[in-house]
């Protein structure tokens, strides 16, 4: 059987890749893609801990399902904001959106 450490290291690596995407990408949609990777890493951790520590309960899976719903809500609002910005400013490069910079 697979030790828990493999899943945890995989989730940590996926989270770090997502963090790199959020910090380094220019395109605002790509930043949201990075956030999705990070949320997936969190969900892998939740399901892993459910399987290894409390498989007789359903708590871990319910928690992960709520995270799914929140991720869907986050993507819907985030993409709506990006489309609105694109309409008004004609760009979605995060560096160009600096009108609130003092």
């Amino acid at each position: 059987m697979i030790p828990i450490s493999w899943y945890l290291i995989l989730a940590a690596a996926l989270f770090s890749i997502g963090l790199f995407g959020v910090l380094a990408r220019k395109n605002a949609v790509a930043i949201l893609l990075g956030v999705e990777l990070m949320l997936n890493a969190v969900n892998i951790n939740l399901v892993t801990f459910w399987r290894y520590n409390a498989p007789e309960t359903v708590t871990g899976q319910v928690f992960a399902i709520i995270v799914f719903a929140v991720a869907a809500a986050e993507v819907a609002v985030g993409l709506a904001l990006i489309i609105s910005i694109y309409r008004n400013r004609n760009t979605i490069v995060a560096d160009d959106l600096d009108m609130m910079k003092w």
Binding site: F20, L23, Y86, I92
Partner: peptide, 28 residues
């Protein structure tokens, strides 16, 4: 929907990508 300014030819990463890579390696 946001394809007009897609900048497919431009670099996909901003100029701070080195620091970003360092931070994500540190977090890992």
């Amino acid at each position: 929907l946001t394809r007009k300014e897609m900048l497919d030819s431009a670099a996909p990463l901003n100029k701070n990508w080195g620091i970003a890579a360092l931070f994500s390696l540190l977090s890992f």
